[in-house]
Design a protein around this nucleic acid. Structure first.
Lengths: 105, 105
DNA sequence: TTGACATAGTACCATTTGGTTTCATATATA
DNA sequence: TATATATGAAACCAAATGGTACTATGTCAA
């Protein structure tokens, strides 16, 4: 799978998007993340793995616990994907502008 | 499913992201889209349905054919989701700046 | 060193997903 | 009207996904 695909796949689940928002506030262990969901730690761990594969979080072992942290780079890379459509949006705006001018005349 | 979920779900497949990029260039019928992929028209139609459910394309019946067009609004809505992390990015940049200043001194 | 704690790993299950095939419907057009 | 064209829809299948339960491993601390 491409990096892009791993990233978008990671975003496709609401639990994982929710985890990302939590990690924006503070780094968390698996157990801490799991406290916020009504599912087993094992399930949360799977989500964290997919987020890590998608390059959206970093994981750092610290003794017997692991700290999961948001990875800004990975998120930015996905935002960049949308920039492909910038031209399209500009065109649409131009079309809109033209239509408005027609109306005015 | 929420609108947001339908949108991210639609982006999670590489074929669908590819279709979106095609439609940025020009509107296309199902058959025209299908010409670009090595899969059946039925499969492409399913992808277009999911893109439509995700509010990423609009579909307009024109006689016996249907024109699929990119929906800028839906795409923009998804881009907006990422803006939640703007603060996080700013913080990271600030941290980086602080670290650099430490190095300089 | 023993026990508790935090995570890792595996097996398993139900549902969703991405694809196919086949058949049906609606609309241009000769 | 008959026919070709464009799409709709349903049944079906293999693989991926999101979850569980259970067991194993590594690490801190009394």
């Amino acid at each position: 799978m491409t990096k892009e695909q791993l990233g978008f796949r990671a975003l496709a689940d609401p639990t994982r998007r929710s985890i990302l928002r939590m990690l924006a506030t503070q780094d968390m262990t698996i157990a801490e993340v799991a406290e916020n969901f009504e599912m087993t730690r094992a399930a949360v761990k799977k989500h964290l793995l997919i987020l890590n594969e998608g390059n959206l979080i970093t994981v750092e072992t610290d003794g017997r616990s692991r700290r999961n942290a948001l990875n800004a780079d990975g998120l930015k890379h996905l935002v960049d994907w949308f920039s492909f459509f910038d031209t399209f949006w500009d065109d649409k705006l131009l079309t809109l502008k033209t239509e408005i001018e027609k109306d005015v005349q």
